[in-house]
Amino acid sequence: MSLDAKTVTRIARLARIGLQPEEVETLGKDMGSIIDWVEQLKEVDVTGVDPMIGTGLAKPRLREDRVTDGNCRDKVLSNAPEREGPFYTVPKVVE
């Protein structure tokens, strides 16, 4: 199958990826074939089986409630494309 142009555009928008019009059709085909491939899994009957999201063997490690990190503003801002004083800045976002 092939994903229609509307779906491809929507997914691209949600992921904030800009697409050229000519890319939409190609991507629709590519993504469709990926979905077809994954959908082979539907041939297995998993009625009554909980989705497996991990091995379930390990328990998560928890952290104690202590301040052990932070106060490293220069590092935090080191990757910012733009900054102003103690802040990083972005093009104005207005709701």
Binding site: G70, N71, R73, K75, P86, F87
Partner: peptide
């Protein structure tokens, strides 16, 4: 102070 209570996480 802005961006001081921040870890890399």
């Amino acid at each position: 102070e802005p961006n001081t209570h921040v870890s890399l996480v």
